[in-house]
Amino acid sequence: MVRTREVLADAGRALLDECRQLTPDELRALVQLPPESVPALASLAHEVRLAWCGPEVEVEGILSAKTGGCPEDCSFCSQSARFESPVKATPFLDADEILAAAEETVKVGASEFCIVLAVRGPDERIMRRVLDVVPLVRERTGLNVACSLGILTRDQAERLAAGGVHRYNHNLETARSFFPSIVTTHTWDERFETCQVVRDVGMELCCGALLGMGESNEQRLELLQQLREVEPAEVPLNFLNPRPGTPLMIRKLVEPLEAIRWIALFRLALPGVILRYAGGREVTLRELQAMGMTSGINALIVGNYLTTLGRAPEQDLQMLEDLRMPVGVLSKVL
């Protein structure tokens, strides 16, 4: 216990007094804390989040505007055409359908709306349709519009930035050393390059992780270092929700307290980012969802996900009210 107090005190001093990032060795010491120390770790992460980012929580709605039929083989994804998934492919939604979903998002108090397509990257037809619909959503709803369209060329990124896409999602998903075990149809480096292009052209980068695919703790630490390198504004933190028909369908969920540990570690490693609750939180954290909000999270996806359902938005908004966490718009602090 004395060792735990020392490790936490050292981390607190670094992040709160010296206002510097933790070193890899300091993070490794936190990973090794015993399970009974996780609440104390979470408490420190909450304090760091308040000091670096303030009390506001950003709320977002997401939409799968083109579902399934993806040529990539991401082992966790039910939208790959390479797996016998029950998810049926559907074409790009009409602008009216996307607008209707955006209006749903406004009604639950969100400030952010992300349009997601299951593609390797956008072709010209997709680019034109996205560039047509983004201004419509912005004008009619006042929402900030984010997109997730896969791998981008610089030209495509420039056009999206000029077209009003303020944030672009492209997850690293996992550590470079583990990535080939999960995806073979594109490389981790291709993902990294798109992340760099997104930042270069002036969009905010939303670059997240998916935990629970069989990666080691050391690989999670590796991923944290790699996330630091791409300097994201936002990091959506997903936990694997094993999907029927996918290669990872047999994996077990991350245990709730272990999920809390890693939420806290993400905050302590990336103190200034928007750290968003994303997919898998309901089934992973179960009754600990409010605890995640006091472990470093300062943003969440409300309502449903791309192909699965979330809990009712009212439950999340009540949780935020009970925690006295105001809903607000965030931008990168670090």
Partner: peptide
């Protein structure tokens, strides 16, 4: 038969 399903933020 497999269904065509559309999930949106508050509906399905």
């Amino acid at each position: 038969r497999r269904l065509t399903v559309q999930v949106t933020p508050t509906r399905v």
